[in-house]
Design a protein around this nucleic acid. Structure first.
Lengths: 208, 208
DNA sequence: TTCTGTGAAAACCTTCACAGCT
DNA sequence: AGCTGTGAAGGTTTTCACAGAA
């Protein structure tokens, strides 16, 4: 029974990306059909959970057989909206930002960082980034002209909130935030924060 | 009512790190006392949740007043085990790995990467890392000699599992994994995976 | 009064187990 | 037989709401 976007759990959406990556690999290996058991194992979840996740969007399997790899991949691509390639911008070309600009992993999942922005003029010149680095003052304009909806934020903590405000103001709807700060944004904007130091600290609890 | 480590939800532990960071800031600003409401707001959670999280470990507040910033910070530090500084190693000094080796955020939370390891001899020489880069074959030995319990894994996907095996074999108990792969490790080893491309892809679902 | 600590309720998520299709 | 789709059960986490301490 398909549901409207709002009621699908965020965790299911997250796992969809994982399933897709597994399907991609299966496809490359010429596998045409996969059971929920096999796919779930590859993704590191239980079979029932995989089926429940897919059930949010409809019925795609064949009983007794499993799922068609290519077809299921297409469905997930459609659901995630990764068929229409979104332009993504990067803000902050410091240590981490520069690395992200060259990170091949984004490309493999179909994302291309179209431009980077940096407030420090010296860094603008010297940044060894994989993309054009533009001065920060051109950012809002660029976002509007190119209809940019997604941004990666890799600026120092102190600058994160003001920059986020600018992004939102210019029309950005989703922010992947690497600054160790809580961002305040309107409800219609989604933030996904990756706090590297926190992830490390989290581990230390489990080490005796 | 204090509980044993096993039954405390991972999510609570995770939030403890966030609370601590907020307490740190409050302390720097000379604030001595904070209510669950104020601290929860700073951390981006509900007051009741903060209190429940703390309740796992004991009672630290004063009714009608709130929590002593310094004392609560000390309790959380004790719980997380961040008082005794753990040595952390980094494996893989490619694009992302090199950036992580210089990432100042780790230092702020009290972590120091003591050494990095890299299989490619050319990279070993040229890596512009903030720490000594040693050849991969010395890794197991280094781990054993220095009692390293935590590792950051930033190698290509194909190398992730074999390297993880080596780490576990040598005695590493916690791995922060940046490779887009599911790692199989024994139950006594904990893995925290940060999949950058997935985090970005996740956002795209919410962008119309 | 203020604000914590906590049972109870609600919301949410996962897993089971089996009916039903191929 | 094999495997999906799903109601129902089970488990976990969050939120409420209030009793009780300062």
């Amino acid at each position: 029974m398909p549901k409207t976007a709002a009621e699908i759990p965020r965790k299911s959406i997250y796992r969809l990306s994982i399933y897709q990556r597994c399907l991609e690999r299966l496809g490359e290996n010429g596998v045409e059909t996969v059971s929920s058991g096999a796919l779930a194992k590859a993704a590191g979840v239980k079979p029932a959970q995989l089926r429940k996740d897919l059930a949010h969007f409809g019925q795609f399997g064949t009983r007794g057989l499993g799922y068609n790899v290519e077809a299921l991949n297409a469905v997930i691509t459609e659901v995630l909206g990764t068929n229409s390639l979104q332009p993504v911008i990067l803000v902050g070309v410091g240590n981490l930002g520069a690395a992200l600009s060259r990170y091949a992993g984004f490309g493999k999942e179909g994302f291309v960082i179209s431009a980077a922005f940096e407030a420090d003029p010296v860094r603008c010149e010297n940044a060894d980034a994989g993309v054009p680095v533009l001065p920060a003052r051109e950012m809002s304009d660029y976002i509007r002209r190119n209809g940019v909806k997604m941004a990666i934020l890799a600026v120092p903590a102190a600058a994160a909130q003001p920059v986020a405000n600018q992004l939102v103001e210019a029309g950005v709807q989703a922010i992947l935030n690497f600054s160790p700060t809580l961002l305040n944004v309107p409800d219609n904007v989604i933030v996904n924060s990756v706090d590297l130091a926190l992830e490390l600290e989290h581990l230390s609890y489990f080490v005796r």
